[in-house]
Amino acid sequence: MGKPTDRELVEQARAGNAQAFGTLVQRYQRRIFRLAFHLVRTGAEAEDVTQETFVRAYQALDRFDGRSEPFTWLYRIAVNLSLNTIRARKPKRDAVPADDPRIEPLLAEHRSSHGSDPARIAQERQLTKALCEGIDKLSDTLRTTLVLVCIDGMGHEEAARVLDCPEGTVAWRVHEARRKLREHLEKQGFGGDAA
């Protein structure tokens, strides 16, 4: 017998099967955490958002009408909670701190390909920091769409369902966000003459 589908898990959880809900949590908590982390930009808040997402989803199991996939449903809750967290903050910081929690995971991801060249690592750190700054300068609309599509790897169709907008709008936002990111990086000195 294969693994139960998301819908089956939701049905079982709705019937009171906590284990089914636990399976659903294990299946999606990493993705939800990653999404929330890139939206709220801190690990602690991302953890809170992740837990709150599943708690709210559990409370709203009866409202799941099955018209969309459960993960779309979870994503929408996570995006809403992340946006609420962002908007409840003090005004946005101007600059990305050197210890921004987003920088190190990306450097660690690419460290194997860069080897141990300190200059290369420093340059990658600069680029990553500039990239974080560029993302932070984007509007909530563009940033959320960019995180969903480019970072989380969600398709335009799925992102459109989460954001409740046409696919074309998602594509336009992604294009616009990438354009603005490129502009920002060029202003920061990246993307100049070829090495």
Partner: peptide, 27 residues
């Protein structure tokens, strides 16, 4: 070493895409 020396402008878009697509959360 300036950043210009390291990054090709024409590859900037794909570089950004690569970074974004492989950007993990903390382990």
């Amino acid at each position: 070493m300036s950043p210009q020396d390291k990054t090709d402008k024409t590859d900037l878009g794909s570089k950004v895409d690569t970074l974004l697509g492989s950007w993990p959360a903390p382990h």
